[in-house]
C-alpha cells in the first residue's frame, strides 16, 4: 500500500472488476438512507443507470420521468428549488447531450444544486455504437459557470463521489461508464471534490488521467518503470474546478505532460489542462483521447485499441515525447 491506499498489485489477474455506475448506485442508496432530502429521477433507464437500488429503498422519493431528458433536468431544477437534493440520471449521450440549454438556464444560471448523472459515457459503451458513446459531455459541462464536473476512476471512487455530491451546494455533473473496469482504489483512498491525486510519483513526465483512463495510465507507468522511465500519474476525478496546484506542482518539475481521457481531447480534460498550462506554465503537451471523430460499434477492448486508449498507447506516447527532447 502507498499513501494513496491503492491496491499494491493493480495488474493482478484476479483484480475485482465492476462497472463505475454500480458505485454510483450504492452511493445514492447510502446517501438516500441518511438524508431524506435526497430524491432521484430517471428518464426510463433506472436499472441501467443503477438508480434501482434507491428506487427500491425509497419509492416515494423516486420519480419516473419517461424518455424526456429536457423535462428530466428541468424538473430537477424545480425539486432543488423546494430544498430537495435531486439526482437525475440518463445516458450521457441524452443527458447532458439533449438538454444543454435547460441545464444552462434553469440549473447553472438559476443556481440550483441539481446532481446530473450521465452514465454510459465513452467508446467503451461498445456495441451500441457512436450514437450512444458520449464523448463531448465533459466539454459541454465544463464551460458552464457554477457547474462541477466529475469523472471517477473506479466504482469505489464513484460511490465516494456520489456521497460528496449530495453535500456540495453547487450543480454537479458526474460521468459514469457502462463496462466493468478494475477496482484499484480502496475504501481508504482519498476523494474530495476539486482535488487531483498523485497516484504514482515520478520525475520524468506527468501523465494526467481521468475516469476509466486512470487505470490504464497506472498500468502504463508500471511498464514505463521497467523501461527505465519514472512517470508521475495524476488522477484527476474533478475536471472542474481543476486542481491547478497539484498539476502545476508536478509539471513545473517534469516539464512534460500527457493527458488521457475516454472522450474528445478537445474541450475535455486535455482542453482544461492545456488552458491551465497556457496561462501559468507552458509545457510540452500531448492529449490522448478521441481526436475529433465519433466512435463505432465493437466490443470495448477492440474500440479502446482502435482509438488508442490503452496502457500500451500511453506507454508509446511517453516514449515518443521523451525521444523528442533527446
Amino acid at each position: 500500500m502507498n499513501n494513496m491506499h491503492l491496491l499494491t498489485d493493480i495488474t493482478a489477474t484476479d483484480i475485482v472488476q465492476e462497472p463505475i455506475r454500480k458505485g454510483f448506485g450504492r452511493g445514492l442508496k447510502t446517501i438516500g438512507d441518511a438524508n431524506e432530502a435526497v430524491v432521484a429521477a430517471c428518464a426510463d433507464l433506472t436499472d441501467s443507470t443503477q438508480m434501482s437500488l434507491f428506487k427500491e429503498a425509497h419509492p416515494e422519493r423516486f420519480i419516473e420521468i419517461g424518455v424526456a431528458e429536457q423535462n428530466l433536468v428541468t424538473v430537477g431544477s424545480g425539486l432543488a428549488a423546494m430544498g430537495k437534493i435531486p439526482f437525475v440520471s440518463s445516458y450521457a449521450a441524452f443527458m447532458p447531450g439533449r438538454c444543454w440549454e435547460q441545464i444552462r438556464t434553469t440549473i447553472c444560471l438559476n443556481d440550483r444544486p441539481v446532481k446530473l448523472v450521465g452514465s454510459h459515457a465513452g467508446v467503451s459503451v461498445g456495441p451500441d455504437g457512436a450514437t450512444h458513446q458520449m464523448l463531448e459531455d465533459i466539454a459541454l459541462m465544463r464551460v458552464l459557470p457554477n457547474m462541477v464536473v466529475l469523472a471517477p476512476g473506479d466504482s469505489l471512487e464513484a460511490e465516494k463521489a456520489t456521497v460528496a455530491m449530495a453535500a456540495d451546494r453547487r450543480p454537479n455533473y458526474i460521468r459514469l461508464a457502462r463496462e466493468a473496469t478494475p477496482v484499484f482504489t480502496t475504501a481508504e483512498t482519498p476523494f474530495e471534490i476539486g482535488k487531483a491525486y498523485v497516484y504514482t510519483p515520478g520525475e520524468d513526465i506527468t501523465i494526467i488521467a481521468t475516469g476509466t483512463m486512470t487505470y490504464q495510465a497506472m498500468v502504463a507507468a508500471e511498464k514505463l518503470y521497467k523501461d527505465g522511465v519514472d512517470a508521475e500519474v495524476i488522477h484527476c476525478p474533478t475536471i472542474k474546478p481543476l486542481d491547478a496546484e497539484t498539476i502545476l506542482h508536478s509539471v513545473r518539475r517534469t516539464k512534460r505532460v500527457i493527458t488521457v481521457e475516454e472522450g474528445q481531447a478537445a474541450g475535455g480534460l486535455g482542453g482544461a489542462v492545456a488552458e491551465l498550462l497556457a496561462d501559468k506554465f507552458p509545457a510540452r503537451m500531448h492529449r490522448i483521447g478521441m481526436q475529433d471523430r465519433f466512435g463505432e460499434s465493437g466490443n470495448p477492448n477492440e474500440l479502446l485499441e482502435k482509438f488508442g486508449l490503452t496502457a500500451k498507447h500511453i506507454q508509446l506516447a511517453v516514449h515518443a515525447m521523451l525521444e523528442e527532447s533527446k
Binding site: 429536457q70 423535462n71 428541468t74 424538473v75 431544477s77 424545480g78 425539486l79 435531486p86
Partner: peptide, 8 residues
Amino acid sequence: SQACGMAL
C-alpha cells in the same frame, strides 16, 4: 417543468 418539480 420547474413547476412539476416543485409540485412533486
